[in-house]
Amino acid sequence: MGHWLYRNIVEPGKLPLLLALAAFVLTFVVTRIITRLIRAGRGPFGNVKAGGLHIHHVVPGIILTVLGGFGAVASGRHGFGAAVFAIVFGVGAGLVLDEFALILHLDDVYWTEQGRKSVEVVVLTAALVGLVLSGFAPFGVNDLSQEELQDRGGVIATVAVNFVFALAVLSKGKTKTALFSVIVPLVGLIGLVRLARPGSPWARRFYRRRPRARARAVLRAYRHDRRWSGPSRRVQDWIGGKPDPGPGPELNRSR
Rank of each mutant, 00 (worst) to 15 (best):
P231E: 11
V73M: 10
L18E: 00
R234T: 06
R223Q: 15
M1A: 12
V141E: 08
V155S: 05
R36K: 06
F28K: 12
H78E: 08
A203T: 02
G94Y: 03
V218E: 08
F45W: 13
A221Q: 05
V159F: 02
K14A: 13
G188F: 15
P243M: 12
G199Y: 11
G191C: 15
T158I: 13
A83G: 08
G115C: 05
V218G: 01
A101W: 05
L102N: 06
V119H: 06
I38V: 14
F165S: 02
A178S: 08
V84F: 00
V169W: 08
L104M: 10
P60Q: 00
F28L: 07
F165D: 01
H56T: 04
V141G: 04
A203H: 05
A83V: 09
A83L: 09
I62M: 06
G51L: 14
E147Q: 07
D98S: 05
T65N: 00
V187N: 05
R210T: 11
L128N: 11
A196F: 04
L149W: 14
D151E: 13
A23T: 01
V218D: 06
P138D: 05
T65S: 08
V25T: 01
G135F: 06
V109E: 09
L170Q: 00
I156Y: 11
V122E: 10
T125D: 03
V159R: 03
A166V: 12
G94Q: 01
F70W: 12
V164W: 09
L124K: 08
A22P: 04
V25D: 00
L67K: 02
P231I: 15
R216C: 11
S254M: 03
G241D: 04
P245N: 12
R205A: 04
L133R: 01
D237Y: 14
F163D: 09
K174P: 08
F165H: 03
H78N: 10
W238K: 15
I156H: 10
V182P: 15
P44K: 11
F206S: 02
D151V: 11
V155I: 15
G43T: 14
L192S: 05
G140M: 07
W228D: 07
V161C: 00
G13Y: 12
L124M: 11
L149N: 14
I34L: 08
V73R: 08
Y207N: 04
G191H: 15
Y6L: 09
R227N: 12
R204M: 13
L179H: 06
R77L: 03
I183G: 09
D107M: 05
R194D: 14
L37N: 07
V119S: 11
F163S: 04
Y6E: 10
A82D: 01
D151R: 14
G52A: 14
D225K: 13
F206E: 07
R32M: 13
E147L: 07
P60W: 02
L124P: 09
N47I: 11
L192H: 06
L149S: 15
R42V: 15
R212A: 13
R152M: 09
S145C: 13
V218N: 03
V73Q: 10
A215W: 07
K174H: 15
A203G: 07
S75R: 02
H57L: 14
F206D: 02
K172L: 00
W4E: 09
L124S: 12
V169T: 04
Y6K: 07
N162C: 03
V141M: 01
T125N: 02
G173K: 11
F206H: 03
V84D: 00
R194V: 15
